[in-house]
Design a protein around this nucleic acid. Structure first.
Lengths: 176, 176
DNA sequence: ATAGTGATTTGATAAATATCTAATCATTCT
DNA sequence: AGAATGATTAGATATTTATCAAATCACTAT
């Protein structure tokens, strides 16, 4: 099948729907359709040619006339098939994460702390990857690691605890 | 369902298809979609509002966000349902007439003379439309016009008189 | 309250395209 | 060959509308 968007664009026009409905009743030709719909043959031709090149109608010559007919297969498909984009098999959550990370980290440094909560959590999770799972850190060590990413280690440490990425007890820290 | 043409028009746009595909994966909100697609939130909002009013998506507030989601039912229908014109559901008398006409006329020619009186009258009335009201015709002229539809102009001329569509006096004919 | 953040509206602009008239092409019939 | 008729193309025009920036609205959290 031809490009899906092309077909959807061609369907988005009153005149073309009228033409298609005419062809649903019976195969027909330009002058007749033009007469039925009170539209010039030039316009009917314009539309039919477009729909033909999109594979929606077929035509063949018969004596004087070019007989146009529906290509029915296309119209039996469920709408979703025309809407679904096969190219987008990538997970959008991942894409969003990647975008945020590439926007806020430059050369390994966090250039600013996002104000939007969702983005902030993504950034904090990224920083937390530098901590070893299961290992116990002193506050000094935690700040030292965070400092590689950003000056304000206090804020970031606090935020990481707030959103549950890091736990603290008796001045000891560990990653979740 | 809302106006079919409206839905088809809304489907005929790359950006809106992208938005719908995003919503097919998961419910989402404007800022996120805007970020994913690299388009301003204003534009996303513009499209979502249009699609919402056409019943293609739904939305509800959740905390900070307006969560948009697909209205799946619409997309499961076969395309033909969106294309087919409901206006063709006129009163049954008209439909019967149109059916008879489309069955017995192909490419403007009468393929056979119906034997059922009702159908025959419909067909004859259709042919009589080619005569000018108030004008006097010679038999030769009458036959010439009828001949455009069918070989057997004698039978048809006789039937038209029989059912009162045409009057004759002294070899002159006129339509009623 | 008030600041912050996401949603929506407004106004302006640029691009796409449906339609018409007139001209040309293609086929059939005399 | 040429006349007639239907199909197609070309050029011009008007309408629709997707998009953005900026302003405003609505809700939430401090």
């Amino acid at each position: 099948m031809k490009e899906k968007l092309e077909i959807l664009k061609l369907l988005a026009d009153k005149t073309r729907l009228d033409i298609l409905n005419a062809l649903m009743k019976e195969d027909s030709y330009i002058e007749k359709i033009a007469c039925d719909l009170s539209i010039t043959p030039a316009t009917i031709c314009y539309h039919l040619k477009k729909m033909e090149s999109a594979g929606m109608v077929k035509c063949s010559r018969s004596q004087f006339y070019m007989i146009y007919s529906l290509n029915k297969e296309i119209f039996d498909k469920p709408l979703i098939e025309l809407v679904k984009n096969d190219a987008l098999l990538e997970n959008s959550e991942d894409r969003y994460r990647k975008d945020v990370i590439s926007n806020f980290f430059k050369l390994g440094k966090l250039i600013s702390i996002p104000t939007q909560r969702k983005k902030r959590e993504i950034v904090l999770a990224e920083i937390s990857k530098s901590f070893e799972k299961g290992k116990i850190y002193l506050e000094k060590e935690v700040d030292e690691i965070i400092h590689r990413f950003h000056e304000d280690h206090c804020t970031i440490r606090r935020e990481m605890i707030a959103c549950g990425l890091v736990k603290r007890e008796n001045g000891k820290y560990w990653i979740i």
